[in-house]
């Protein structure tokens, strides 16, 4: 849930997560975009749903893939960018 009071954001842009078009605001991390979409951000080694946990770069559970180049990054430390394509998993 984006906080509305006392926060001014710039004009939103769109990006893709697993092929789904989402809206994001400049300055938001990929983690924010994902959590606004769903708490499920991938799956664990045993196939169960994976959520975000520490949101500070330490737990490394929020690895996502930036497509098409394929770089895998921690979503909580990476800024969302216009036109970005993000793969989960």
């Amino acid at each position: 849930m984006r906080i509305e009071s006392k926060v001014e954001r710039q004009a939103p842009f769109s990006l893709q997560v697993e092929g789904e078009t989402l809206r994001a605001y400049p300055g938001e991390t990929i983690a924010t975009v994902l959590v606004e979409r769903s708490p499920v951000i991938g799956h664990m080694a045993n196939g169960d749903a994976q959520g975000l946990f520490c949101n500070m770069g330490t737990c490394c559970l929020c690895m996502v893939t930036i497509l098409p180049e394929g770089r895998r990054v921690r979503a909580c430390l990476t800024a969302a960018e216009p036109g970005m394509e993000i793969g989960l998993g």
Binding site: R2, E28, V35, V40, I41, G51, F53, C76
Partner: peptide, 21 residues
């Protein structure tokens, strides 16, 4: 491990910095 369980500090960082809950 259910999605939606966070370290409390992780929630707080969302509120302080990213301005989301």
């Amino acid at each position: 491990t259910l999605p939606g369980v966070y370290a409390a500090g992780g929630i707080q960082a969302f509120v302080k910095s990213q301005q989301i809950v």
